[in-house]
Amino acid sequence: MAEKLLNWDEVLIGGTIKDPGNSKQYETGSWRVERPVWNPDTCIQCMFCWVYCPDSAIKVDENGKMAGIDYTFCKGCGICVEQCPSKPKSLKMILESQAKGKTEEELRKEVFSSEK
């Protein structure tokens, strides 16, 4: 990602960063080798994936419910899949290469076709 470097006289005293949470401008999703795919049909909304995700990459709606994966930041660690307690699991890991050129909906169908 292209970063605009500050001039020496623009740097604040103490190296202060004045925009809280500005690392959201830095995508970590490109690190991913594998990605989790979510199946809302079997999800029991326990939010374990949310509480264990290291990268705040579980999307939450206004009711505090699981609403999908934020692929801009998800690093593909697989913790959410491992911890998902629903039977069958509502999250599955696939290779990034398998996801190429497909919409989330298409992937969902492909990955979870046998479970509905």
């Binding site: 970590t28 509480v51 290291p54 705040s56 206004e62 009711n63 934020d70 930041f73 690093k75 697989g78």
Partner: peptide, 20 residues
């Protein structure tokens, strides 16, 4: 957890810790 998930996060994404 649904209640807690609605809160503004104190730590956000974009950090560069190892995956996992």
């Amino acid at each position: 957890l649904n209640e807690l998930a609605k809160k503004k996060e104190g730590l956000v994404s974009g950090h560069r810790l190892c995956p996992g």
